[in-house]
């Protein structure tokens, strides 16, 4: 059955906090960039990669994208 390890749960929980901290910082950067950068194209150049990085973190860590091709079934 599943590992009831409170340790494992705790570890995963703090991983989540780390991700949300990164997302928060990136969002603030986005917001400031939109105020600070007046020209359209440079702003796009800044915002696009930030959005992609944010999406990647959610896909990878929150939605467990790698589980799609992982060989092991966790806690089966």
């Amino acid at each position: 059955m599943s590992m009831h390890g409170a340790d494992a749960e705790q570890r995963e929980q703090s991983a989540g906090v780390r991700v949300i901290a990164i997302l928060a910082v990136l969002t603030i950067i986005e917001y400031i960039a939109a105020i600070a950068i007046g020209a359209s194209v440079p702003l796009l150049v800044v915002l696009t990669p930030i959005a992609l990085v944010k999406a990647w973190y959610i896909l990878k860590d929150f939605m467990h994208l790698p589980r799609l091709w992982a060989d092991e079934e966790e806690a089966a």
Binding site: S2, H4, E9, E12, D61
Partner: peptide, 30 residues
Amino acid sequence: KQILGLVMTSILLLSSLTAYRAETAIEHGN
């Protein structure tokens, strides 16, 4: 409304953390 947009964005992002916590808790039987 820039401020409103930022606040809403933050709430939604934060809700992803609580959703994640719910998932990990349930996966560990909590």
